[in-house]
Design a protein around this nucleic acid. Structure first.
Length: 827
RNA sequence: GCCGGGGUGGCGGAAUUGGUAGACGCAAGGGACUUAAAAUCCCUCGGAGAGUCAUCUCUGUGCGGGUUCGAUUCCCGCCCCCGGCACCA
């Protein structure tokens, strides 16, 4: 009587064995090579979704494979457990964020375990626990001491729906990244981290991230936004004031026929101070500031400006040029003022055209005749004309010289500008890490002493969704004594952006129980960096740039010697269905629990890895999962049909002459499969083709089965193939494979088994198919012994009947022969 | 507009260094088993045409050129799709 493939029984059995034998827990072992495989930890929103399943299945296969390949593998998981949804749930359902979060964690943990993932649960980390966030506070205080954390009043993005501040990165085309409400602008005093200090290093560090996908590096590059150029100072005529501008095109400065200030520029109001139209101009400025703030993410507005009536001196030409104020100049980039070169800048050209300002061409692109009245701006480099002492030079190479000249003359300097802003981390919410700072009337801003950490979140807090931080309304939290003078003082009531928590959690995994420091430097030295980081590309700029920054900061605090936390990042594609991402609002969500119930975790794992390579989108398809289920069933029944081989052990392989063709063929196929699967997992991360190679091997075993079973050697070859197949499949379908491995008579569990060794001798086919082409077109093929001499292969090809027919009436001019592959006859 | 990534059957996707295009799977069609169905197993499966039907020819990897004995792969030009940034001086 044949057994059915009872996935539920098998999966439960092995999950409890893995758990009771604690097989996934790892320790530092300096004698062994380590491998740190990490997937982005989840936000405990309630349930695992397919995106998680895919992400974690990829990491699970890689880490199981690496373990079998002899590495000491760290594969941890934890929870990004602070954040707004918990608080919103509290407001909506009256459940405390902590309770809500811990319940979700408990549920999702069960789901992950039900998938059979090989996490070392002893290293589990939850950012909402004081044992974790105390170290966020510790790091913050260190940064505060180094002036890497500082307070600044400025315009901030404000989400009215979440009633909190958002970092620039968290505003996506004008909307809150979390709730899609339209973000406002507000002026507030906030805590910032000085990530801009590391702008240059964050950019140059890209050279060490060569295995990151190009588009991710490009996004970061854009975000950092380095531009090299020069600052130039223009004195205001009849005043001691000056206007400083930044330009990347100092070569065009002889064509600078006016200056333009942002409406927000501090001088804007000043310069129109004594003009006749003062009041209307002031009103205009106010209106434009407002408009710029509101429309900043709505694309380009019609260019508008006003003449201040004042002039400035172009220090290169000595000419007086008008100073304008216009809405196309941004205050928060560069100096908030530009030199306008209408002949060589599209925007300035458009503006000059509208207001009749003069245009002077100072560059001719090579081989072109300069026009007095150009129809468009020419931004190309070329030869300088009308440029005083620089006339005739190449504009590109003159830039250096002109910047140097400005420097010598004292009205400018070479400089570099970054688009990257300091990271605003203050959030006016409850469910985050309290910023460990005390405000004292006499002593000012005082850090909470290290020995008093953590500053705990009070549990008795009312969450009703009113504006302002809930902590600010909690009297017993707010009122405290100044650590310096002992006088009455107030606690900071803002909490940290949760991206702070996630910027170093991967260090914490190295020594999660550490009580004296955020993590043990020795443990981190062993495990870090993360060898493979897997997660959604939506974090390409936010999380990944913050984490890179934190790694450098922790390095400068002496806690680690690593410069980069994630030398290899593998972004995984979205899981979609019916053409769009799975979401409740679309109603196209597929529940992993339901799939596990129906097909089992192994099938779900196989399917989600099989249909496309990790970096591509994965399109859910109900029929597809049945195909994966069938595959596992075919394996199960194949083993049932050959159960008599379970107890035959050694492959007493006489290679070569004694083995018949089928045996040799199977072993060749087997070793080719080992090679392909190994390369696919280890080098290419193409788990889909790894699975299809294993399918091919099974197909071959099934096809040759009857023939193989007729001989002793055949049976033993078949048994060997069954073992190899199971070992290779085990990272993908670990439960089924453990079960079959046990049936094959093994005592030791497969988790600790060895990855099959590849033997190139055996993978090499003894005979190969040589393709015969005539003028590049496939005409015939024949079998030949591997390594047959070129001359013989050529003459055999030419003697083929079909080839002879085709060659009738033609002259063979040339015969190209590629060893063991192809003959191409040119005739 | 700028930057990045792509375009291969009905579908998801293979093709490792320029050398048999379409592996593996899904769907579809046909057959076996069955009273019947499901499951399972076997066969066919890019398009067009011919046929002596256990075959052959032409054509085919977004479009147009080029290099080469040979191009999905390399080069030039174009079209389209996706992602990111966007008045960044």
């Amino acid at each position: 009587m044949r057994e059915e493939y009872n996935f539920e029984e098998i999966e439960n059995k092995w999950q409890s064995i893995w758990k009771s034998e604690n097989v996934f827990s790892v320790k530092e072992d300096p004698g062994r090579k380590k491998y740190y495989c990490l997937e982005m930890y989840p936000y405990p929103s309630g349930k695992i979704h397919m995106g998680h399943v895919r992400n974690y299945a990829i990491g699970d296969v890689i880490s199981r494979f690496k373990t079998m390949s002899g590495f000491n593998v760290l594969h941890p998981i934890g929870w990004d457990a602070l954040g707004l949804p918990a608080e919103n749930a509290a407001i909506k359902h009256g459940v405390h964020p902590k309770e809500w979060t811990l319940d979700n964690i408990a549920y999702m943990k069960k789901q992950l375990q039900r998938m059979g993932f090989n996490y070392d649960w002893s290293r589990e980390v939850s950012t909402c626990l004081p044992e974790y966030y105390r170290w966020c506070q510790w790091i913050f205080l260190k940064l505060f001491e180094k002036e890497q954390a500082f307070r600044k009043k400025s315009w901030v993005n404000w989400c009215p729906s979440c009633s909190t501040v958002l970092a620039n990165e968290q505003v996506i085309s004008g909307l809150c990244w979390r709730c899609d409400a339209e973000a406002d602008q507000k002026q507030m005093e906030q805590w910032y981290l000085k990530i801009t200090d590391y702008a240059e290093e964050l950019l140059s560090g890209h050279s060490r991230l060569s295995s990151w996908p190009e588009h991710v590096l490009a996004m970061q590059r854009n975000w950092i936004g380095k531009s090299t150029g020069a600052h130039v100072t223009f004195p205001v005529v009849g005043s001691s004031q000056t206007v400083e501008v930044f330009t990347t095109r100092i070569d065009t400065i002889f064509g600078a026929t006016f200056l333009v200030l942002s409406p927000e520029h501090p001088l804007s109001a000043d310069l129109i101070g004594d003009s006749a139209d003062r009041d209307s101009h002031m009103a205009w400025i106010k209106r434009k500031i407002e408009e710029q703030r509101l429309s900043r993410d709505e694309g380009e507005a019609e260019k508008e400006g006003i003449d201040t009536g004042k002039k400035a001196v172009n220090p290169f030409t000595g000419e007086d040029i008008p100073i304008w104020i216009a809405n196309y100049i941004l205050m928060d980039y560069g100096t908030g003022a530009v030199m306008a070169v209408p002949a060589h800048d599209e925007r300035d050209f458009e503006f000059a055209g509208k207001y009749g300002l003069s245009i002077r061409v100072v560059i001719t692109p090579d081989g072109m005749v300069p026009k007095k009245e150009p129809e468009e701006a020419t931004e190309a480099y070329g030869r300088l004309i009308q440029s005083g002492r620089f006339t005739g030079k190449s504009s590109r190479s003159a830039m250096e010289e002109m910047a140097l000249f400005a420097e010598e003359q004292g009205f400018g300097s070479k400089s570099t500008l970054f688009r990257l802003r300091d990271w605003g981390i203050s959030r006016q919410r409850y469910w985050g890490t309290p910023i460990p700072v005390i405000y004292c009337k006499d002593c000012g801003i005082v850090g909470v002493p290290y020995e008093e950490l953590p500053v705990q979140l009070p549990s008795d807090v009312e969450l009703k969704g009113e504006e302002g931080s809930p902590l600010a309304r909690n009297e017993s939290f707010v009122h405290t004594a100044c650590p310096k003078c002992g006088g009455p003082a107030r606690r900071e009531t803002d909490t940290m952006d949760t991206f702070v928590d996630s910027s170093w959690y991967f260090f914490r995994y190295c020594s999660p129980g550490e009580t004296g420091l955020p993590f043990q430097p020795e443990a981190a030295k062993y495990w870090m960096p993360v060898d493979l980081y897997i997660g959604g590309v939506e974090h390409a700029i936010l999380h990944l740039i913050y984490s890179r920054y934190f790694c450098k900061v922790l390095r400068d605090l002496g806690l680690t010697d690593r410069d980069e936390p994630f030398p290899h990042y593998l972004p995984q594609g979205m899981v979609i269905k019916d053409g769009s991402a799975m979401s409740k609002s679309k109603g196209n969500v597929v529940d992993p629990d339901e799939m596990i119930r129906k097909y089992g975790a192994d099938t779900l794992r196989i399917f989600i890895l099989f249909a496309s390579p990790p970096e591509k989108e994965f399109a859910w398809n109900e029929k597809g999962i049945e195909g994966s289920f069938r595959f596992l069933n075919r394996i199960w029944s194949f083993f049932q049909e050959n159960a008599d081989l379970f107890n035959e052990y050694e492959f007493n392989a006489a290679e070569g002459s004694e083995a018949d063709e089928t045996v040799r063929g199977l072993r060749t196929k087997m070793h080719q499969t080992i090679r392909n699967v190994t390369v696919d997992i280890d080098k290419r991360f193409h788990l889909n083709t790894a699975i299809s190679s294993i399918m091919e091997l099974l197909n071959r075993m099934k096809a040759d089965r009857d023939c193989l079973r007729t001989s002793e050697m055949g049976r033993s070859a078949l048994r060997e193939a069954m073992e190899i197949l199971i070992r290779m499949l085990s990272p993908f379908a670990p439960h089924l494979c453990e079960e079959l491995w046990q049936k094959l008579g093994h005592q030791q569990i497969l988790v600790h088994g060895e990855w099959p060794a590849f033997n190139p001798e055996l993978a090499r086919e003894e005979t190969v198919t040589v393709v015969v082409q005539v003028n590049g077109k496939l005409r015939d093929k024949f079998e030949v012994e591997r390594g047959t001499a070129e001359e013989e292969v050529k003459s055999r090809a030419l003697k083929l009947e079909r080839i002879q027919q085709i060659l009738v009436g033609r002259t063979v001019r040339k015969v190209i022969c590629i060893q063991d592959k192809l003959v191409n006859i040119v005739a």
